[in-house]
Design a protein around this nucleic acid. Structure first.
Lengths: 141, 141
DNA sequence: TGGAGTTAGTTAGCATTGCTAACTAAATTG
DNA sequence: CAATTTAGTTAGCAATGCTAACTAACTCCA
């Protein structure tokens, strides 16, 4: 067996852990009735501010047609709206609606709650470790 | 701002980190031509040993029909096989084929390559921290 | 021991979310 | 101004979730 802390071993186990974590959280996400991809895009709009569909696609690391469809769905659901870009007739700016903000915040609270319950049972030191790990993981990409 | 190591704060950042990590790794997974759900199930079979479809569904936190279809696909691809459970006529045991093992190991190598390069640049202590974090995350669910 | 209920798995059908290919329309560039 | 690039859309496919409804086998108990 490869050493547990060797780069490939850590990469693989992190990958597994991330998959299982998100699967567990997906249940909570489902309660919003919005779907993870739309919720994530909405989150970028709410916390990162309005932007074009292309910029949103880059932020979410998906292709333009995928984001085009997600934005259309968000718009249909009344969670986001498009306004034409004054400087570029091809582009539009997407921004969250009031309802979009509200749904996101409620969903986020629900989602975080489930994980929070489990995290709260960990010793403080473990929680600090996970906090540090979250930063390291974000820094990797 | 809530304290960084408070349960809700860690929950939220961990969730974000997991999403972004998986997005980055998804590209690598695609190169195997197998798909993440099948790859993950196959990984359980290879590293955790043969088991029933139901047990596999529980391990992967998906519903029985979803796993039933994944196993059927793995079988069609020649990556896993079913044998009847001698003790229970309803159940079957799923096990990886030689080819399944080989594909998994090659896929694993490919998948971790990109991440491994980055992990390799971290100080040993950070890598150990992430290794520990992976275990903690798995233990949460 | 035989019928009721439970459990394992399948099938069918739907929704979401990825992708590429092919298109339109607007902007840029030589 | 023609050629190219860029933003976005549409269409169509594949993977992967789900629930509902079904079959077959097992278990339990009167």
């Amino acid at each position: 067996m490869t050493e547990r802390a060797s780069p490939p071993a850590v990469a693989d186990r992190l990958h597994s852990a991330a998959i299982h974590l998100l699967r567990a959280l997906r249940r909570e996400d489902r309660a919003t009735g919005v779907g993870p991809a739309k919720l994530s895009a909405l989150s970028v709009l709410v916390f990162g501010g309005p932007r074009s569909i292309g910029a949103l696609a880059r932020a979410e690391q998906v292709r333009l047609p995928t984001m085009s469809r997600l934005v259309a769905a968000l718009e249909r659901d009344g969670l986001a709206a498009r306004t034409p870009d004054p400087a570029d007739g091809r582009a539009s700016r997407v921004h969250p609606t009031a309802r979009g903000r509200s749904v996101l915040h409620r969903g986020r609270a629900r989602r975080v709650e489930a994980l929070t319950r489990r995290l709260a049972q960990l010793p403080e030191a473990d929680r600090a470790l996970l906090s540090r790990a979250a930063d390291l993981i974000e820094g990797l990409t």
